[in-house]
């Protein structure tokens, strides 16, 4: 599904991601863990095309996407959520989601001027897609609420829905469970399982070990930009280098 070879990203003199090679399988939950500043978010940014890698290659379904711009990678089926998502607070949940399917549409200025049939059809399609995604994340009942009026956990789900509305094959989720309580975390984990059941592939950055251990099929551990371990949850949790990184590190990442 996703194959990364010798990926490196330098910020000035700092190697945020250094020589990472890894393969993520389709229809699995692939987790990335590591202390703060380990380069996890940067790794996602590289895959999604938000940053250009310094060296290395990224293959998506066998296609080289290393130097493609962000918007094209999204069109190839990479959806993502961010550590913080800025939505339009004074608009309804549904209104925020409609644009999610925009990348699958083609109407331009001219269509707007003449209100073309294509535009109308595409707008309908986007609205349907938004509703479908909202339904998927279980938030149909808040569709007319303002973003400003929904809870933190509902926001996380809206962010998922927005990514889902792009019709992705693979989803990159950056710390989706940060700032939500344990029951809600479990709910989000269920949602990820549901995504897998629907044929999606999930890549997940998370600090909540309980959740990771319960849900991940494969874990990659980053530390100072380098991959120090990968494997199943059992393999990783018994890995000496990982224990060293977590206990020896001065970060509170395992919290």
């Amino acid at each position: 599904m996703l194959k990364v070879d010798n990926l490196t990203k330098m910020f000035g003199g700092l190697a945020a991601v250094s020589n990472v090679s890894v393969e993520f399988e389709a229809n699995k939950v692939n987790a990335i863990i590591g202390p703060n500043g380990a380069g996890k978010s940067t790794f996602f940014n590289l895959i999604a095309g938000a940053h250009k890698p310094t060296s290395g290659t990224i293959l998506l379904d066998g296609k080289d996407v290393t130097n493609l711009p962000c918007d094209q990678i999204a069109r190839l089926g990479v959806g993502r959520t961010f550590q913080t998502t800025n939505l339009f607070e004074q608009a309804t949940v549904l209104d925020n989601l409609i644009v999610g399917h925009r990348l699958r549409t083609r109407s331009g200025l001219w269509d707007v001027l003449v209100n073309s049939r294509r535009l109308q059809a595409e707008e309908r399609a986007c609205r349907e897609k938004a509703r479908e995604a909202l339904d998927f994340v279980g938030l149909s009942h808040v569709e007319n609420r303002f973003i400003a009026d929904i809870t933190q956990e509902e926001r996380k789900r809206v962010a998922f829905a927005l990514a889902l509305a792009t019709d992705p094959k693979i989803l990159l989720l950056d710390e989706p469970a940060a700032g939500v309580n344990p029951e809600e975390t479990e709910g989000l984990a269920d949602l990820m399982r549901k995504m897998i059941n629907h044929g999606l592939t999930v890549c997940l950055i998370e600090h909540k070990m309980g959740m990771i251990m319960g849900i991940a099929d494969k874990i990659m551990v980053l530390d100072h930009g380098e991959k120090i371990a990968e494997g199943t949850p059992e393999q990783v949790s018994n890995d000496a280098a990982v224990i060293e990184a977590y206990l020896g590190g001065d970060e509170d990442a395992a919290a």
Binding site: A50, P69, D71, A74, R75, N86, L162
Partner: peptide, 17 residues
Amino acid sequence: IAIRNGDELAESLGINL
């Protein structure tokens, strides 16, 4: 409007900024 909400997010939705 999606661009106003943030360049990063808009790009991740496949929007050519």
